[in-house]
Simulated assay, not measured.
Amino acid sequence: MIGSMAPRIVPADVTDIQRVLADHSRYWGGRDLRGLHLMALVHEFGSTCLVARDEDGIRGYLIGFVTPDRTGYVHLVATRDDARGTGLGRALYGAFTDAARRQGAVRLKAITTVGNEGSVAFHRGLGFDVRVEEEYNGPGRPRVVFSRTL
């Protein structure tokens, strides 16, 4: 990684997510996912929304929460273009897993679009089961669903 210290993973606040959105393409490339960055999630689930920060800013982040049925759901996770391949995404998932367990989570879940092979490979590498749910997002709108028991 660039910089002298490894990023610290800490709870996110709204200002952190606003900084990410101001530099959105460094995390998401050409995909415009700004509309998925719901500030209410950060306000209401702050202990499971995380940023990885070092002296060069926010290297990566994860927005997640624990559902009433004790599922730790990862809504978004991204690493900045200069932090990819460093293990930071895996570290964010590890920190989220710890936070979700503290809230009683017994499983993890995330979704992605069909065809997002990078996300599928990443989640498989973390031990997730992978399946396509044809109607997950409505008629004719399938999603890949990742799940893993804790």
Rank of each mutant, 00 (worst) to 15 (best):
T149H: 12
P142E: 14
D16C: 09
H123N: 11
E55L: 09
P142R: 15
T79C: 13
V66F: 00
S147C: 06
A12F: 06
V14K: 04
L36P: 03
R143M: 12
L88F: 05
R102Q: 11
L21Q: 14
G72P: 06
V106M: 08
V144C: 09
Q103I: 00
A52T: 04
T97N: 02
R101N: 02
F122S: 09
A40I: 05
E44P: 00
Y61H: 06
T15Q: 13
R34A: 14
V74A: 14
S47Y: 02
A121S: 10
H43A: 15
D81F: 09
N116I: 01
G72Y: 01
G30T: 13
A91G: 07
V51F: 02
F96M: 01
F65A: 03
V114I: 03
G89W: 00
P11I: 10
P7M: 11
Y27Q: 09
A40N: 13
R148A: 10
D32W: 04
I9T: 06
G94D: 04
G127L: 12
R90N: 10
D54A: 10
S47D: 13
D23N: 15
R131N: 10
D13C: 09
Y136M: 14
R124T: 01
V106I: 11
L76F: 05
D16M: 04
T15R: 13
R53P: 11
R107Y: 04
R8Y: 08
T71L: 00
F96S: 00
